[in-house]
Write a protein that binds this DNA or RNA. Sequence first.
DNA 1: CATGAATGAGTTTTCATTCAT
DNA 2: TATGAATGAAAACTCATTCAT
Lengths: 188, 188, 188, 188
Amino acid sequence: MRQKDEAKARDILRATLEEVQAVGLAGLSVEAVARRAGVATGTVYVYFKGKEALLDELYLHTKQKFAAFVLRDDGLPLRATFTRITCAYLDYVTENAAEMVFMGQMANSPYVTPQTRETVALGVRPLMALLERGKAEQLLKDVDIAWMTAFLGGVMHAMAPLGARLAPDARRQFQETVAALCWDALKA
Amino acid sequence: MRQKDEAKARDILRATLEEVQAVGLAGLSVEAVARRAGVATGTVYVYFKGKEALLDELYLHTKQKFAAFVLRDDGLPLRATFTRITCAYLDYVTENAAEMVFMGQMANSPYVTPQTRETVALGVRPLMALLERGKAEQLLKDVDIAWMTAFLGGVMHAMAPLGARLAPDARRQFQETVAALCWDALKA
Amino acid sequence: MRQKDEAKARDILRATLEEVQAVGLAGLSVEAVARRAGVATGTVYVYFKGKEALLDELYLHTKQKFAAFVLRDDGLPLRATFTRITCAYLDYVTENAAEMVFMGQMANSPYVTPQTRETVALGVRPLMALLERGKAEQLLKDVDIAWMTAFLGGVMHAMAPLGARLAPDARRQFQETVAALCWDALKA
Amino acid sequence: MRQKDEAKARDILRATLEEVQAVGLAGLSVEAVARRAGVATGTVYVYFKGKEALLDELYLHTKQKFAAFVLRDDGLPLRATFTRITCAYLDYVTENAAEMVFMGQMANSPYVTPQTRETVALGVRPLMALLERGKAEQLLKDVDIAWMTAFLGGVMHAMAPLGARLAPDARRQFQETVAALCWDALKA
DNA sequence: CATGAATGAGTTTTCATTCAT
DNA sequence: TATGAATGAAAACTCATTCAT
């Protein structure tokens, strides 16, 4: 027998991502996903329990890949980390348009299970640790960590798309501006 | 359309809003909207060209009502206006949950026409004027206006839901914190 | 608007009956039923909640029509009633082949709801009353009524199809034989 | 087929029986059968040509096992044999619920091939021989043998389930009653 | 022979839209 | 204009069967 192929599951997930970018979350059909992945309709149901499960799982994967790329505490000084996160976020938006579209469409949809929403929420932990450190060293304001992470998330989410359209050199300046705004907002 | 009964059109729009809050944008059916509005299915098509038009129009209305409430330049000093906007945004979120859910779900959906998206974008004009004034008076950093509005929009969008859950007195302090963060970020 | 048409519901029920006779309960598709009834597929779902509900309802109707025809206590002497029931049962089998096939296929299927099964069971009441009378007059054996009805039901169910194939005059004799067997079995 | 492992074929047949009892004939899936039998889906097709063949074959086996147990002419006097058959039938129903459910669901289904239906019909031969003997000895009425067997089959089929629910001592009396009814019906 | 992943035709069901009344 | 029954295309999902391993 063919062994259940991990690569095939990835094909289906990738096809879903592309299809959402192409036709939107409403308008996504399992058949189109299968066709794009190069498998039969039924095969999708071999790897995923159903359309909802497929989307939920893809959302989890996408968010985690994203968080792993952007939200790292690499031990740089705090101010430098702000710049690093800004750059990483912006680079990600620029180079992974399909992922961003997908996350945007899923974020408020009823397809995401509470379980996944919870797991995803854990992704900001490294950022929280970083901010905690900043607060302990009195480099940052004495503000609730959850508020700070929401603040940073909101800023990045709203601003990154603006930077993606810029020419490379303007982008550099953009990134520094975003980092500066965030830093000025949160610094003690 | 729009001949006979202006109230009936509003019933349908309100019903749509509530239904999206209840079952999500995916899962919204015209029949459920009609039932909730207390009219027949066909009547929806008397007042709106179709499901897409209904959603698009409702999105426009909702955004404009929201912008009118939150994004006013009432001539207060700049710093005070930051606090006013924060309060207004947060109050709106707290008291119009269905509207917020609807706007969240629509923002990235393919239901919104480019025309509407454009019109909605004009809603931030008062805010842009305000920021322009601040820049002219050298109270604010010399940063692209579009970047600033994106910044403020992102912060509000991400933080307001956190405040909505707080007790009234804690909420007061929350609002001031949000306003302070934004001010520190943008002030010269 | 078109008023919900009682005749259309009957068309669908009749079409279901015929379709089951033609292709069996396994192999019954809603689309084929709709085609045979001369309506669109979706129309079936206007009148019935789903395939299961359609079958369950049809089973109830069929059983009740059958019981009303066969299981009447028309006040004749007991012995004569045995003959009457035998004749009625046999006539019914002969003239309503589709109904019999359908009842046979449904009887042991999981499509029938317990509720319907219960209601159908009430159909033997007139027969039970008749047997009660016979016991009171000591014309019948002192045997549990439920046992007697099961006995008669079993005999009819098994024997009637044999009679349906006979020529009219042989059939007359057949009916009398069946009645005689039942009478001899139950009489005191 | 049938080369390697006779036991595996029996496992599959047994699993089918149990699965039909659990989910009904409609709702039976080959995969569920395989899972219950502890083999792979494909293995079912090694031992049986397909789903229909599996069911048909199982029906034949079940009917024959049943007939062998119930319909024996063991040379007892006629009246005693009536009691014996009643007891055997009832015992079988009580102890082989899954078999009875399966036979009930298959009897009217299109899965049974005419060939099998014919072979199964031969199972009543011993009973027919017994009744023939009774007629020759003028112990029984002069009634068509086919009618008599239908009569007895119908009575047993309908009544046995009633007895299965009784306590052991009540069951004894039940069996005698059933035997008496049949005897009174058929005796000369 | 045994496996179970893969297939894809076929099934049930939904739902935006139309239209007779 | 208002109604809601009717439509039928499209969607999600199932499952008997095949086949590569």
